[in-house]
Amino acid sequence: MIGLSHYLSVSAIIFSISILGLMINHRNLITLLMCIELMLLAVSTNFIAFARYLHQPAGEVFVFLILAVAAAESAIGLAILVLWFRQHHSVDVEQLNRLKG
């Protein structure tokens, strides 16, 4: 029987993968965007699982909002990416080194 804990484990694994992706990705900006989407999807899975478990619609409504915001976020991300591409003709993360922290 697949229960709440299974869903939570799956979403925790996906969430960790996405954070790892953000931390160690050194190749492509598109991958960064995908990791961000993955993170939001992991959170959505969590909300859906909890909403089913608690028999409440509130969690599912939250998922709608997260999806809409995720779309807006990826749109902004892609737009910034296009600006970057126009200047550098590549989507390498390696080139993000003008500003040294």
């Binding site: 969430f15 959170v43 997260i66 910034i80 600006l83 993000l96 500003l99």
Partner: peptide, 22 residues
Amino acid sequence: IGIEAAIKYFVTGALASGLLLY
């Protein structure tokens, strides 16, 4: 450097809101 700053801000900001949501 403006675009670079925007990318960095975007990625860290998205990470922050992801953690907050989790």
